[in-house]
Design a protein around this nucleic acid. Sequence first.
DNA 1: GGGACAGTTCGGCCGGGGCCGAAACGAGCC
DNA 2: GGCTCGTTTCGGCCCCGGCCGAACTGTCCC
Lengths: 237, 237
Amino acid sequence: MPQDHGGPALAAFAALLADPTRAVFCSALLDGRAWTAGELARTAGVAPSTASEHLSRLVAGGLLAEERQGRHRYVRLATPAVATLLEDLTAFAEASHGGRPAPRNLREATRRSAEARARTCYDHLAGGLGVAVADALLARGLVTAEAGLAVTERGHAWLAAQSIELPPRAGRPGGRPVVRSCLDWTERRSHLGGALGAVLFRTALDRAWVERIGSGRALRVTPDGGRALRELLGVEL
Amino acid sequence: MPQDHGGPALAAFAALLADPTRAVFCSALLDGRAWTAGELARTAGVAPSTASEHLSRLVAGGLLAEERQGRHRYVRLATPAVATLLEDLTAFAEASHGGRPAPRNLREATRRSAEARARTCYDHLAGGLGVAVADALLARGLVTAEAGLAVTERGHAWLAAQSIELPPRAGRPGGRPVVRSCLDWTERRSHLGGALGAVLFRTALDRAWVERIGSGRALRVTPDGGRALRELLGVEL
DNA sequence: GGGACAGTTCGGCCGGGGCCGAAACGAGCC
DNA sequence: GGCTCGTTTCGGCCCCGGCCGAACTGTCCC
């Protein structure tokens, strides 16, 4: 039986994430974008040589995918499934680890609140904005939590009216679930992941409703975006 | 932001599972029952003193719950959420680890096939039986995979007709999802987890459709059970 | 070609942590 | 009380693995 091997395989896999440096890498990559080896090394505060070895292990273990461009080694999470797994693990780890420590100084506190307003979580919206959008979709009956999260009839109509298309394989067995609850570390509440969360974020970026700030997960809502959110969903920021 | 701490917290949590012995403990506990420290020590092939230390760490980390009875220390997975997390991790680990090794001898092969027919996965059915039941529910339209897995109108009626009741909080936000796809390591296909999977397994045990073999995850389908499965779901074993 | 720079490989250091056995503890049982 | 047995604590061993710096490779740019 595989579960005889489940022990060792599980241990080997968990060991990939059990190192603080590798965990920081994965956390950073949860912004859904590709990072270079050097960026990750600086972020984690280790020598480039150390980062290189870690990345090789993560790639070999199937957590990361790499792409070489010239003298750069770009690396990103291998699949959305990896992101989901990391989100689940982090949520659990944070929860069982007890409350998170308070910010150490004013600068960190303000940065926290800025990020809390709007940020990304892999490929969808998170932070206060993500939670607000999720609440609005539920309140307007576009998404139901009746028996697991799902898009309602009205929800599909609304998406069509906005010319927002879900990917064809979404929701089919083996495909990505349409809606997934993703616990927000900041808000301690759920925002929307899954194919719906991803396509909403993508749309918001394409239509310039939000734009990235710097190279992290932080987002800014544009004036157009604020208007659209208010009109389409009744979301007031 | 918590994700600054997400790295270290994630690493600390993953480290709990990164040890082969602790991973074997968790794998064994995926049968959903409480084991004593000594049983786990023998299963993993380590000294009782070693097992004791590991268990303390797992309990402190929130993965296991313990209950002392006389001179015994019973431990079990702390919550269904832990089981879900372990299932996801194991499935991913098995998948990315490449194909599982072939059975080493005839005895192991036969044991595999016996277990493959019917076994448990935490608190629901798995193996060939689990997959067959899942397929039958889908084929009869009692469960849909339209937009994530969900119980259909007909499904609810069917459950009521069988006097099978879902727990009241199931499917509500914060509650356990009603239906969850759980990848079967043996069959490489999904069977049903979630509240529905749990209540179906519980019902099957209560009505003596299946019974446990020994102390592992293996199950035997009783004659009554075979009849019930055939009549109610058209499942032929 | 030459210089700058990203990444990799290797050797060596060092600490953490898993393991055991011995001994202590404590519950059940006679 | 005295015995058994499951569990725990402690001390000590040892090895795995993360870290760095130095040297090397390969790419881009001038």
